Amino acid sequence: MERRSFLRGAVIGTSAAAFGGTLWRGAAHAAPAQPGAGPYGALGSPDANGLRLPSGFSSRVIARSGQKVGSTAYTWHNAPDGGACYADGTGWIYVSNSEINPSGGAGAVRFSSTGAITGAYRILSSTRQNCAGGKTPWNTWLSCEEVDRGYVYETDPWGVKAAVRRDAMGRFKHEAAAADPVRRTVYLTEDTTDGCFYRFTPTTWGDLSAGRLEVLKMGSGTSGPVTWATVPDPSGASTATRNQVSGAKRFTGGEGCYYADDICWFTTKGDNRVWQYNAAAQTIELAYDDSLVNGTAPLTGVDNVTGTSSGDLFVAEDGGNMEICVITPDDVVASFLRIDGQSGSEITGPAFSPDGKRLYFSSQRGTSGSSSGGITYEVTGPFRG
């Protein structure tokens, strides 16, 4: 059974697709993905950068922690994490968080229409352990602090406007964010072993300074209808946000979050699951669960997630065997790429260029296993459009 069928069309970029919500048309069905032959074929031998890629794909390193980015004056940050791409005239920008504490923040790399690096710069400073985040429909980057009572910061990918702290989005151990332009809300994950799944509905769409924070409620199962309840005190000053609403659904380590056409996909690393929340039907179900896999599970340590207009989801591993796996619309899960010789790291920040032909991501700790050893890559090839 096909879990989702989508309108195939021109790619306007993963980040735009994630928050635009108009590329895809389809209904979700209960059918957790199973291993099978992926759309891109088997992985080849490691290339010069240590990446195993399918035939027709190639890689390059665009940045390394502690080193200047290309010929720019910007030194790439340590522990590169969540990221997104933004159209920039005929080129594009890739933003990346820094998951260190203190002095996390985020940086950006600007590319020309040919993919040449034309600039790099800081867009957020003096924050703590910025892990993942998400793109807004008005082209800002939400950078999320993964610390107790952490904040969400709204930043400018062009580095012109000052970053703004968005207190109304709640203070908790933030992970990722995904905007739903239809319901005019932003979904948020929480990276704790007893975390929750939230949504923030701003008073005025496009202005995140005020609004309502809610938490998802449902029964003890993994599928079925859900409801939402308002979090009384988003500041979590006296009681953690996840403990303020009786019956709030618990998730074991919320990670990546991605929205497209009424569906918000999010991952939980504690149980290696990919969830799908159908915002139109207000139901939830599993898209992937490694405990339900027939045979050996190709995807473990689920973390950041993104997608393409073809309906493919790309899920990065935190650990596992350092792969990015693809989950196809017909519920097949397969390896897309693997990084050799970096078992002490994790893959972070997957995001596609606006034309869908280049995938950016990082190995947070690289070959050294240290936050100062981060490596950010670009993979180019015949991605399905």
Rank of each mutant, 00 (worst) to 15 (best):
C85Q: 14
S220D: 08
G349N: 11
Y40D: 09
R199F: 06
A79W: 08
S353F: 10
D233L: 14
N49Q: 15
T114G: 01
G104I: 01
T306H: 08
G374V: 15
D194A: 06
F251R: 05
R358S: 10
K173V: 01
D191I: 13
Y360D: 00
D312N: 13
W141L: 13
G319H: 15
V160R: 05
K161E: 14
Y94I: 15
D340A: 07
Y74N: 08
F361D: 01
S353L: 09
E317Y: 04
W158H: 10
S235L: 08
D207P: 03
G385W: 11
F6Y: 09
I12N: 04
G195T: 06
P225A: 03
D167T: 07
A163H: 15
I327G: 00
R183P: 08
S55P: 10
A28S: 14
C131A: 11
P234V: 11
D47V: 12
C131F: 09
G270C: 03
G134A: 13
E214C: 05
V95G: 12
V226P: 06
P350F: 02
E285M: 07
A30D: 14
K173Y: 05
A84F: 13
E145K: 10
L208F: 11
M169G: 15
G307Q: 04
A210K: 11
G105T: 14
Y259C: 11
W76T: 05
E214Q: 09
Y360F: 09
R64G: 05
V333F: 14
T230Y: 00
G369F: 12
P382M: 06
A287W: 03
L124F: 07
F111G: 10
E317L: 13
W228F: 03
N304I: 13
T185D: 01
G115T: 04
T201Q: 12
Y74T: 14
S345R: 02
Y288V: 15
W265A: 08
G344Q: 05
D167H: 09
V231H: 04
T127A: 08
V274D: 10
P232R: 02
T136D: 02
S96F: 04
A87I: 12
S238W: 02
G159S: 11
L213A: 05
L124D: 00
G301K: 13
G253M: 07
R365N: 10
W141G: 08
T306G: 05
P35K: 12
S98H: 14
P350S: 00
G301E: 05
N243K: 15
R384I: 06
F111N: 07
E317V: 04
S5T: 04
F200A: 13
T222V: 05
E154R: 07
V152G: 13
S238G: 05
